[in-house]
């Protein structure tokens, strides 16, 4: 990628929005030795998969002391295993200050993530008492419920949680959600679930006739959907970076 731009030429670069799906490491507590050991263990299960992969550290479930959170050590352990830590997600202001000190990018907490799929652990929540106010918000972002047909040219957006539509989504219409999308009717337009990167998001519909379906940036167009579950009740989910269509009655 040696795209050397000569000064004086009109445009050195162009900024484009990109949505990349990435691996997040959900950190519960930090101990350097245990961390590196666990990391090696994970990598040994799929050596190719982790090689030179970018990684973000998710602090949303971190329960250890802030003073134990040594990003330089984390980065070092990862680097030794050919993993590149590029940023942190969530965390309180102290933790984020530490991350910035280690030249890591800061990403917003994932309030949009679909909690429905994560088995809640009450004990864990009780202990995370010092959570600052903004982090309390993701607790329950209520689903958006639409009971009218979504017509051609219309766009319905659930930026925080799930989107539930009790009517058809017509060709030329677009529905987007941070979480899951349920369509209790035919899905004829475009449906994009997990738009902020939630790979566990799913799309459910009573009749798959979509122009496009997408989960966390992985998409399939109508042409590629014809062979499997077309015009049937299905759920669509992401498995190993592949969109999988499965009939609902056999689920």
């Amino acid at each position: 990628m040696s795209d050397i731009a000569t000064p004086g030429i009109q445009q050195v670069f162009q900024l484009k929005s990109a949505s990349v799906s990435m691996t997040a490491l959900e950190l519960y507590y930090f101990d350097n030795d245990e961390f590196e050991e666990a990391l090696r263990d994970k990598i040994s299960q799929a050596p190719g998969f982790f090689r030179d992969t970018p990684l973000i550290i998710s602090l949303e479930k971190y329960e250890g002391l802030d003073s134990e959170l040594d990003f330089f050590k984390i980065i070092g352990a990862c680097r030794r295993n050919n993993i590149h830590v590029i940023g942190v997600r969530g965390g309180n202001s102290d933790q984020r200050r530490l991350a910035r000190g280690a030249s890591l990018a800061l990403m917003p907490g994932s309030g949009q993530r679909d909690r429905a799929h994560e088995t809640e652990n009450p004990g864990e929540k009780a202990e995370s008492a010092p959570a600052p106010a903004p982090r309390a918000a993701p607790e329950a972002s209520p689903a958006r419920i639409i009971s009218q047909p979504v017509r051609s040219g219309q766009q319905v957006h659930a930026p925080e949680g799930d989107l539930i539509i009790l009517a058809p989504v017509q060709a030329g219409a677009e529905v987007l959600a941070a979480g899951n999308i349920h369509v209790y009717g035919p899905l004829r337009g475009r449906a994009l679930a997990g738009i902020h990167g939630a790979e566990s998001a799913r799309i459910f519909c009573q009749s798959l006739e979509a122009e496009l379906v997408s989960i966390a940036g992985h998409y399939k167009i109508s042409e590629d959907l014809q062979d499997n579950g077309w015009k049937n009740a299905v759920q669509i989910q992401l498995r190993d970076d592949l969109l999988v269509v499965a009939p609902l009655d056999k689920a």
Binding site: Q148, R151, Q170, G172
Partner: peptide
């Protein structure tokens, strides 16, 4: 369908 959407 489009005009119905606009109506709504």
């Amino acid at each position: 369908d489009r005009i119905l959407g606009i109506l709504q």
